[in-house]
Every structure is written in C-alpha cells, then in structure tokens.
C-alpha cells in the first residue's frame, strides 16, 4: 500500500469519526445542557445549505453552458419531484446537448 493510498484510508477514517461525532453529539449535549443560544442555533441550522450551495453555484457558473442548462432543467424538476428524477432528467438533458445538439 503506497503513501497516497494510506492517506486516503486515514482521510476516510477521520470522516467516519467526524460523522459519528455528529451522531453522538446531540445526545451528549442534551444530557449536559438545556439551552443553545438562538444565534448559535441559527448559525448551525444554516450550515448544510451554506456548504452545499458552494458545491452547486460554482459548477453552474464555471461548468460550461451544457452543465448550466442541464442544472436549470434539473432545478425545475426538483421543485416538484425527487432527487432521483432530477438526476435522471438532468442527465438526459446534458446527454442530449452533448450528443444530439453539438
């Protein structure tokens, strides 16, 4: 096993520990303290959407017009339907643009 491979294993283990910490954390917290300051709670509440947005917006802006177009189509689908349908429709859209239109 080379060093790079080993680093990936360590990375996965660290990610697993971080994930487990979130799954135990609330239990530990709730048994320790009764009240979380509202601003802290609001900040924590915003974390997932904020992080995930940073993986979406740059791909949309810098990913090329084919990616942007299929993301727009998927967005419209996602307002009504499941993520699985978004993926399916978005994939069909990008394949159509790449192989049929170009």
């Amino acid at each position: 096993m080379d060093a790079q491979q080993l680093n990936l294993i360590y990375l996965i283990i660290a990610a697993a520990i971080a994930t487990f910490a979130t799954r135990v954390g609330g239990y530990v917290l709730i048994t320790q303290l009764k009240h979380i300051p509202p601003r802290v709670e609001a900040a924590l509440n915003a974390v997932p959407a904020a992080v995930l947005t940073t993986l979406v917006a740059p791909a949309f802006v810098y990913g090329g017009y084919d990616v942007a177009a299929s993301m727009l189509v998927a967005f419209a689908v996602g307002l009504r339907f499941s993520t699985l349908r978004m993926l399916l429709v978005g994939w069909v859209a990008v394949m159509t643009i790449r192989h049929l239109i170009l």
Binding site: A42, N45, A46, P48, A49, L52, T53, L55, V56, A59, F60, G63, V67, S70, M71, A74, F75, G78, L79, S82, T83, M86, L87, G90, W91, V94
Partner: peptide, 19 residues
C-alpha cells in the same frame, strides 16, 4: 453533471428552513 445536480437536490431539500 450528476454530482452538482445531486447537491442541488440536497440544497432544495433545505428550502423550508428559516432564512
């Protein structure tokens, strides 16, 4: 395109949250 769309779906899943 699947990952950005997947993340987009996750973002949309949070749209009922405050702010």
């Amino acid at each position: 395109v699947l990952l950005p769309i997947y993340f987009l779906g996750l973002v949309l899943g949070f749209r009922k949250r405050d702010r």
